[in-house]
Nucleic acid binder design. Structure first.
Length: 382
DNA sequence: CCAACCGGGGTCTGCCATAGTA
DNA sequence: TACTATGGCAGACCCCGGTTGG
């Protein structure tokens, strides 16, 4: 055991000679420290089990790298008591892939356990990521964003199995790219966990009488890259809540889940319930019936996650401009536009004397270009 | 020709709890 | 028994334009 560690550290140390072009920000002095620590370890390893103080050489190495040691210690204190770590190797590895010093320091500060990974492991993992990404810089930007996603798992085999599993669901390389970009954690899930989610979705499709449950699974994952990093419990609870609150038919529920509703599946259930309650109450107070409220949410699932305050403001603002609540219920998509955008559009329309009761509200549901073209015409007509 | 319908695109972690492991 | 690996949680939109049917 000790011999293996010795070999590993020697290897890491000797590795340095293969990378002579060091950046200025890594003074050469610190490359020796692992080796020195190794010597200390060799002398002391008999008593090593008794007490594991934090390793002074490690602290010094990290400080040279610019790591925020306080932050790192707070996050993963165990790493600081390890005898053998690979901070040089990890820094060198990241640098060789194009990361700058600041990024490296930030990555280790935020996920100290990274320094326990071997060079070989990192290179192997990198190749797996590169089977999905075209360039190193894409990967670096994700590591920068979320160090944990890259470093949390030591199981490259599992990562590989996840890739094949996702392909086996009928997802394309473009889909995998998207998932690894937006929810990289999904690939660090155990294969079993991902299978559970796929099974849950498939069973759901079957229970809804979907003719092609496999396609149903594929569609939902494609629509919502985050779903694989949610718990099956959450997804199940949310589907149950849809059923209870909206009383949809099977086909309505399928349509909801395969469409915008897929994104809503991963909301925290409490948040979703709270939003549903608040917005329903507002709609009731405006004279809507239960059926209308249910239809509103089916037609416009984003209402589940829109912040109540914002959505409520938008509704008020539209009503104040002479738009009828029924018009709004028929065209909930206009709520997707920001309040400021809607306000500006309404102001412009008022200027040309546009009458919502006469001409409807769909003019608000158009892209900037189309809206401006329409407005230009209205201006001319005047 | 134009309004209405509809799907798509970008994008998203950092922390805590705990079972498992050496 | 300390530490690692992994599961799970809270947080919370906006916009564009292709296609279609009248």
């Amino acid at each position: 055991m000790a011999a293996r560690m010795v070999a590993q550290v020697m290897n890491i140390y000797l590795c340095r000679t293969r990378f002579p072009d060091l950046p200025n920000c890594f003074p050469s002095a610190w490359f020796k420290s692992s080796y020195l620590r190794l010597c200390a370890f060799s002398c002391n390893h008999a008593t090593e089990a008794i007490q594991k103080p934090e390793n002074a050489a490690l602290l010094s190495n990290l400080s040279v790298l610019g790591v925020d040691i306080k932050m790192a210690q707070k996050r993963q204190p165990g790493v600081f008591r390890k005898v053998v770590t690979n901070e040089e190797g990890v820094a060198e590895f990241l640098r060789s892939k194009g990361a700058n010093c600041k990024t490296i320091a930030s990555v280790i500060s935020r996920y100290p356990r990274a320094i326990t990974r071997s060079y070989h492991h990192l290179e192997e993992r990198w190749q797996l990521w590169r089977s999905i990404f075209k360039t190193d810089s894409e990967i670096i930007s994700i590591i920068e964003r979320s160090p944990e996603s890259y470093f949390r798992s030591s199981d490259n085999g599992n990562f590989e199995k996840n890739i094949s599993f996702l392909y086996s669901l009928g997802l394309t390389s473009k889909d995998l790219h998207r998932i690894l970009t937006t929810a990289p954690r999904a690939f660090s899930n155990s294969l079993e966990l991902n299978k559970q989610m796929a099974k849950l979705l498939r069973d759901l499709g079957v229970s809804l009488g979907n003719e092609n449950p496999d396609d149903f699974v594929k569609r939902i994952i494609t629509k919502n890259a985050y779903i694989l990093i949610r718990s099956t419990k959450r997804v199940k609870t949310n589907v149950d809540f849809f059923r209870e609150a909206l009383e949809p038919s099977n086909s309505e529920l399928i349509k909801l889940l395969q469409g915008q509703g897929a994104e809503v599946l991963d909301l925290s259930t409490d948040y979703m319930k709270r939003n549903f309650k608040n917005i329903s109450e507002q709609l009731y107070s405006l004279g809507c019936s239960t059926e209308e409220v249910q239809k509103f949410f089916l037609d416009y699932p984003p209402a589940f996650y829109a912040s109540f305050e914002k959505l409520s403001n938008k509704i008020d603002c539209l009503l104040e401009s002479g738009i009828n609540i029924k018009q709004l219920l028929n065209k909930p998509r206009i709520l997707e536009f920001s309040a400021i955008n809607l306000k500006n559009r309404i102001k412009e329309l008022e200027r040309v004397g546009y009458d919502f009761t006469k001409h409807g509200v769909t003019i608000l549901d158009s892209s900037r270009r189309r809206f401006e073209a329409k407005l230009g015409k209205l201006n001319k007509e005047e």
